[in-house]
Design a protein around this nucleic acid. Structure first.
Lengths: 130, 130
DNA sequence: CCTTGACCTTCCCATTGTGGGAACCCCCAT
DNA sequence: ATGGGGGTTCCCACAATGGGAAGGTCAAGG
């Protein structure tokens, strides 16, 4: 199949497929006589794998590691688990950062009258009398 | 003062100050005879404002809006509050997305033995038996 | 007076992934 | 043969930030 079909059945855009190939995340696809990239079920499955890993927030570099493990029949599940745990932790840190921002903002919002008057603790705080 | 001092007292890097100026977030700084950007306490305060808004996760475009409101003595606090609430909501959405990823990953991690054997539900799931 | 080192200037490049679009080629059905 | 819907490459853009090169400037000390 051509790239369009591979894209729609894998959920990865044609643009991204080419990019993944270019950056070496996936191996170069085969080419038809006229230069079209060709894909089989195997390649589509790889694309789907990448898609899901990305959906779980893994950065491309880690996706690459996961992909290598996936294709290594003699891998140790411990290695996979370690990557996944690291990602859980990475997400946790980002979540915590954003929650801290949100908390701060919530306090400020709560302190703001939100009426037609100009007085606003939010701006006062941002203005910083520090 | 020059840009270096403005940077260190505001917490915004010199690089970013120039960038903010270039993109119009802040007005062009004055220049000394030899072309150096010059800053006063007023400008530093603006930079600090930007810094804090960014620290709360506001994208530059919203920072620009906040900055305009900050400098508008006749603003309504309701407008500021609305921006802040939108940011709380935006953060909430991103947090929720990441929590969903984290939750999924946690389940997978839990199901993975993490030993020397190759069997791993994490990879099986990513591989997609869909 | 001149050198040295710290500072400033602009300009370009890279990042992380993703999308948009131009210019051009190809294949199939009508 | 022609038209439309593929495909190909290449360049541009985003949000924000950092790195670094090549060159101008300023102040201090010899």
């Amino acid at each position: 199949m051509n790239i369009g079909e591979a894209a729609s059945t894998s959920g990865v855009s044609a643009k991204m497929i080419r990019y993944y190939e270019e950056t070496g995340l996936i191996p170069p696809a085969g080419r038809s006589g006229s230069g079209y990239r060709t894909y089989g079920p195997r390649e589509v499955q790889v694309l789907r794998f990448v898609r899901r890993a990305r959906d779980l927030g893994f950065p491309m570099e880690k996706v690459s590691d996961l992909l290598a493990l996936w294709q290594d029949r003699s891998r140790a599940s411990a290695d996979v688990k370690r990557l996944a745990e690291a990602q859980v932790a990475a997400l946790g840190m980002r979540i915590a950062e954003m929650q801290a921002m949100q908390e701060t903002l919530r306090h400020l919002v709560q302190a703001c009258a939100g009426d037609a008057r100009p007085d606003c603790p939010i701006l006062t705080d941002l203005g910083g009398r520090t």
